[in-house]
Design a protein around this nucleic acid. Structure first.
Length: 435
DNA sequence: TCTGGGGTCCTAGGACCC
DNA sequence: TCTGGGGTCCTAGGACCC
């Protein structure tokens, strides 16, 4: 055994996930540099290894890298979440078939928990897991194992760096573990972000090993209890458990930057109504209702020379609701209260809080229940599911949507939309004949 | 010209109660 | 003259994640 613990955590991480998804249907891009952009084609959020090697940074604005991208003929895609979501589901399905304890951590990552001693050859089992995922989905993955989730995360990054390309890394024994942690920069630890990292570096804590050597009280003071948990996990004591069932959502947010800045109240109303409809749909899909609706608008803070304004308004409903019309009415009233003319708005959003299950009902003494017309919303959802998004929509959400975000380089929804299925053309040699 | 979106958790401080 | 203390709840803001 590489380490002694009663349980082992593994992290399975899809390599350059969005890029790998795009390549599934574009095998011609296999050894080419590829990047995927954020919503609104704003930032680079996924890069193939070739693109990383060319010096394309994670999260950098697209327009700043355009010259480099053109010069090297890098393939560029807008993000295609229906595709990525569907491929993610397939990867997770394979993992859940093969492992009994799986936590879907994000669209491209899953933790697993294995009781110590379950497999006499852990490495061999991981090779099988990796090969099976790749065979069934076409998505390459890396696997890291360790006695805690935080160490499994670090092991995974070693697996990705491994030049042998095996893509699997198992954390070593204690004495070798220290030597390894001495090579891990504080900024690369799961749970330590930019702000905490710079604070630690100012106090001469630069590596994971140096962090583990600090006193608990000092760590807690610098990084709060979450940071202390991280440090204990680095020392090998599990503090973060595997969450097999996804916890119920506490908030739902729909917000977007506009394709171009917006000035009129009318355009903002369309956008806010649109986002509210989407948020309400997410609510119903999750079987929830909301009690608190937050609407916010803001100008572009990157534009130093322009007048800046941002504001938000919170409204609390008497009765929880997931009815699109009810929520839009409230959201538009909030928008009207915070709107100021003379600004160039760049972003708006709707945040729902205080979520309760849809069967929850708090009876009121002096008011009648609000808009309990779920059958109507159910019918609308069914129609939109069958005939396509926005077949029926709220009038307030508008039709022109001139403010809508850019998405100029999107690949087709290959796996989730009948009209966008890839078409395969086969040509047969002359000599071919059907018997 | 052009800088993402959607979440969670923790803490400090204010309001309020008795 | 002399003006408490302890608790809870809520919110805003900051930090983190992918």
């Amino acid at each position: 055994m590489p380490f002694t613990a009663s349980e082992i955590f593994g992290l399975i991480d899809c390599n350059n996930f969005y890029v790998s998804c795009e390549r599934l249907f574009r095998p011609d891009l296999t050894n080419r540099a590829v990047v995927v952009l954020s919503n609104n084609d704003g930032c680079i959020i996924a890069r193939s290894n070739e693109a990383k090697a060319l010096g394309i940074g994670m999260g950098t604005p697209y327009f700043k890298q355009e010259a480099l991208i053109r010069k090297n003929k890098i393939a560029v895609f807008s993000s295609n979440y229906p595709l990525y979501g569907d491929i993610s589901q397939r990867v997770m399905d394979v993992l859940m078939r093969l492992e009994s304890e799986v936590e879907v951590y994000s669209i491209d990552e899953a933790f697993i928990r294995i009781p110590a001693g379950k497999h006499h050859d852990l490495k061999n089992h991981m090779c099988f897991l990796k090969a099976t995922v790749e065979k069934h989905t076409g998505i390459p993955v890396s696997i890291g194992l360790g006695p805690t989730k935080t160490l499994a995360k670090i092991a995974n990054s070693f697996a990705k760096q491994d030049p042998s390309g095996a893509g699997i890394f198992i954390m070593p024994h204690k004495q070798h573990l220290d030597a390894l942690l001495a090579t891990v920069d504080i900024t690369d630890i799961w749970g330590i972000g930019r702000s905490h990292a710079s604070r630690l570096k100012k106090q001469s804590v630069h590596t994971a090993l140096e962090l583990t050597n600090q006193a608990d009280s000092w760590i807690r003071k610098q990084l709060t209890v979450t940071g202390l948990r991280t440090a204990m996990e680095l020392r090998g004591t599990p503090c973060i458990s595997l969450e097999k069932a996804a916890p119920s959502k506490k908030s739902i947010c729909t917000s977007r930057s506009f394709g171009q800045t917006v000035q009129s109240l009318a355009d903002l109303q369309e956008a806010v109504a649109t986002y509210t409809s989407q948020a309400a749909y997410k609510l119903r899909r999750a079987g929830l209702r909301t009690t608190v609706i937050d609407v916010f608008i803001r100008t572009n803070s990157f534009k130093r020379g322009e007048p800046q304004y941002c504001n938000r308004r919170t409204f609390t409903l008497e009765t929880p609701s997931s009815h699109t019309g009810t929520l839009i009415k409230v959201a538009l009233a909030s928008l009207k209260a915070i709107y100021r003319s003379g600004y160039r708005y760049q972003k708006a959003g709707v945040l729902l809080n205080g979520l309760v299950p849809e069967n929850y009902e708090q009876l009121r003494l002096f008011s009648t229940p609000m808009s309990q017309t779920t059958p109507v919303m159910k019918a609308v959802d069914e129609i939109n599911k069958r005939w396509g998004r926005d077949t029926i929509q709220a009038a307030a959400a508008g039709l022109a949507k001139g403010w809508r975000f850019r998405q100029l380089k999107k690949s087709p929804a290959y796996t989730t939309c009948w009209s966008e299925l890839p078409i395969v053309k086969a040509s047969f040699p002359e000599s071919f004949s059907v018997a």
